[in-house]
Design a protein around this nucleic acid. Structure first.
Lengths: 347, 347
DNA sequence: GTGAAAGCGCTAACAT
DNA sequence: ATGTTAGCGCTTTCAC
C-alpha cells in the first residue's frame, strides 16, 4: 500500500558523513568527547538530510526521554484546558517537551482502567513522567513519577496539587455575608463532579457557621454552563422571596446570571451581587466578582513538581494546596445588602 | 538513581503463561489463529500482571500504530482549543488514539523549523499521520499523511481544511449593510495573523462593493481579546460621527463591545448592532449576532480526512472549504439602521 | 576521539 | 496453532 520506509535514519547520516553511528549519536546527545571538526560535519549532514530522531527508538533505548505526558479526562472541559495552558508554560521554560493524551469521551469507556492504560502507555514508553488531571483512581502501577491535579481521592499516594473548591466557596460566601446578605442563592455545577460537591459544601458550611438556616429553594442545580445559569437565575429571581445575592458555581454560570439580570434590568452589583467561581472566561468587564482559583497555576506547579521528581529531587511536600483569591471585576463598589435588598423589593 | 526497569514486558507474560512471545503478540493484535484456551490464559496473565504494551517498541516495529498526532502552534489560542475538541470527537468515533504535541511558545523558537521537527517526530515515530493547525510552512518532508487546518499558505501541497475568514467577513458585512447601516466600525484581530488580515479584507471589500467609501477612523486595531474590544469600542463610539454598527473580529472582542455598550446604556441590537466572528465563547444570551465558523467542525473534518489517508483511501478533494453561518443570538429582532441611527443621535 | 556490537520490547516472516 | 528468529533505530558499554 505504501512504499517502504524512506525515513532518514541515524545510519544514513553516519554513512554520508563517513562516520559511525555511535559518533552521530554522541553529537545528537550533546556529548563533549567529539572532535569539533567531526561534529560540524555531522551537524551539516543532519541538516542537509533533514534528519530528525525517531522518538520511538530513542525512547526505547534511553532512560531519559525529555518528554512529559499530560493525561486529561476530557478536552471539552474548560478546567482541563486551563490546566493545560499552565503546564505548557512550565514546559516552555524547561528542556522537556509535552505530549498530551486525551481519553476522549470519558463516559463511553471505563474511566479507571482507561487512566491506568494511558499512564502505563506514556510512562513506560515515551514519557519520563505523567501529570493526570482529576483522576478517579488512587493507585497506578507504574514506577515513573506521577503528579495529579485535583484528584478525586482525598489522599492519593502520589504527589498532587489540590484545588481549593471548598475553601474558595467559603471565601465567596464570607464575602457575600460580609456585605450583609442573608438570602444567598446558589447554582451548583455538574453534580457528579467532586468540585461541584465541594463548592456546595462550602456554601452550606458558611451559612451554618453564620447561623443562617439553609433554604433549599435557594439551591438550584446547574451543570457549569451559561444555559443552566440562565435557567437557575430565572428560577431564583422569580421566587416570592428572591435572594439578594447569587453564588454561581463557575464563571460560565455567573455569565448566565448576568444575562438574566440584564433582561430584568437589574444592575450588578447595585441590585444583585453575583460571585462566580474560577476566572476562565475573561469577564473583567462585567462587574462581577470572581473567586479565582488560578487554575493554570495548578498546571504550572504540577509540572514543576513532576520535573523535580523526574530529576530525582525530593519534593518539600507531597501535596500542594492552591490558594483562591477574590477578585472584584467591577469598577464600582459593591453595595451593601441593605441597599440591594430595598432595590430588589422594587423588581 | 532509579532502580532498573521493573516494567512488565511481553516476555514476562509469555513466560508466566508458558507460551512464546509471538503467540502473546498475536493475542495482543487480535489475530484469530490462536486457540481460544490459550487466548484466555494469556488474557488473564496480562490482566494479573497489569501489562500494557510499550508504545515505543510497538511503534518501531509495526506499520500501523493507531495513533493520530495533532500539532498546535499554541495552546492558549482559543481557535486551536476549539479545533482540538473537534478532533477529539472524531477520534472518539474511530479506532485511533490522539496524541497532541504543542510547540509551546511560538515566538521563542523558529516556527517553521519547529513545525518540521514536530511533524517528523510524530510522523516517523509514533503516529500514523498528523494534523497541523495554521502551519506557516507549505512543504514538509515526511511521507506519512498530513492534513492542515487553516494553513497560512494559499495552496499547500497537502490536504487542508480552510477556514472561511474572508467569506465570513463578507457575510457579516452584507448582513449589516442589509439592515441599512452605512457607518460600520471594525475591530481587527491580531494583525500578524492571516485570519485577521482576511477578515479585514472582507470588511473592506464589502464596503467597496456597496459603494461606501472607507473611513479609516472606523477601523481600530485589536488583538482578539475582550480588553482591546473595550478600548476599540470606546474609541469608535466616542467619534464625533460614531458608527451605528460594529463588526468585531472575534467573539471575545464582541464581548468587549458589549461591555462598553452596557456602560453607555446602549442596548444591543436596538441602539447598536454588533456582529462578532466565531462562536467560541458561549455568548448565546447576549443578544449578539455571530458569524459561526464551526471551528470544531474543522477539526472533525480534518481528522476524518486524515484517517482516510492513513487507510489508503482517496480523498474526493484535496481541500475542504468550511462554511460560515450567521447566527442571531438575540431573541429580539435587529432593528433597522434608520432607527438605530436616530437612537445613536441621542448618545 | 571513534567504532563495534549488544540489546531495548515488539512484530512479522518463516518454520514447524 | 505455536515457536524461532531477525531486525525496527537508537543509545551505550567496551574496545581500540
Amino acid at each position: 500500500m505504501r512504499k517502504k520506509r524512506r525515513t532518514v535514519t541515524i545510519q544514513d547520516v553516519a554513512k554520508i558523513a563517513g562516520i559511525s553511528v555511535s559518533t552521530v549519536s554522541r553529537v545528537l546527545n550533546g556529548k563533549t568527547d567529539v572532535a569539533s571538526e567531526t561534529q560540524d560535519r555531522i551537524l551539516s549532514v543532519i541538516k542537509d538530510l533533514g534528519y530528525t530522531t525517531n522518538l520511538a527508538a530513542k525512547s526505547m533505548r534511553s532512560f531519559r526521554k525529555d518528554i512529559v505526558g499530560l493525561i486529561m479526562p476530557d478536552i471539552a472541559y474548560p478546567f482541563a484546558i486551563e490546566v493545560m495552558k499552565g503546564v505548557n508554560r512550565a514546559i516552555a521554560e524547561s528542556e522537556f517537551d509535552l505530549l498530551v493524551y486525551t481519553t476522549g469521551d470519558v463516559r463511553k469507556s471505563g474511566r479507571a482502567s482507561h487512566e491506568q492504560k494511558y499512564v502505563s502507555l506514556l510512562n513506560n514508553s515515551i514519557a519520563d513522567g505523567v501529570i493526570i488531571v482529576a483522576p478517579v483512581t488512587d493507585k497506578f502501577s507504574t514506577d515513573a513519577p506521577i503528579v495529579s491535579i485535583d484528584p478525586l481521592m482525598r489522599d492519593p499516594n502520589y504527589a498532587a496539587v489540590h484545588a481549593t473548591n471548598y475553601q474558595g466557596a467559603l471565601d465567596a460566601m464570607n464575602y457575600l455575608l460580609g456585605l450583609g446578605h442573608q438570602r444567598i442563592g446558589f447554582i451548583t455545577g455538574r453534580v457528579e463532579l467532586e468540585s461541584s460537591a465541594r463548592r456546595l459544601k462550602g456554601y452550606r458550611d458558611a451559612l451554618k457557621k453564620a447561623g443562617i438556616s439553609i433554604d433549599e429553594q435557594l439551591i438550584t442545580v446547574g451543570d457549569y454552563t451559561a444555559e443552566t445559569g440562565v435557567q437557575c437565575a430565572r428560577e431564583l429571581l422569580s421566587l416570592k422571596h428572591p435572594p439578594t445575592a447569587i453564588f454561581a458555581s463557575n464563571d460560565q454560570t455567573a455569565m448566565g446570571v448576568y444575562q438574566v439580570a440584564q433582561e430584568m434590568r437589574l444592575r450588578i452589583p447595585e441590585d444583585l451581587s453575583v460571585v462566580g467561581f474560577d476566572n476562565i472566561v475573561e469577564s473583567k468587564y462585567m462587574g462581577l466578582t470572581t473567586v479565582d482559583q488560578f487554575i493554570s497555576e495548578m498546571g504550572f506547579v504540577a509540572t514543576q513538581m513532576l520535573i523535580k521528581l523526574i530529576n530525582g529531587e525530593r519534593l518539600e511536600a507531597q501535596t500542594y494546596q492552591m490558594r483562591t483569591q477574590l477578585v472584584i471585576r467591577s469598577s464600582c463598589k459593591h453595595h451593601s445588602a441593605r441597599k440591594t435588598k430595598s432595590r430588589m423589593g422594587r423588581v
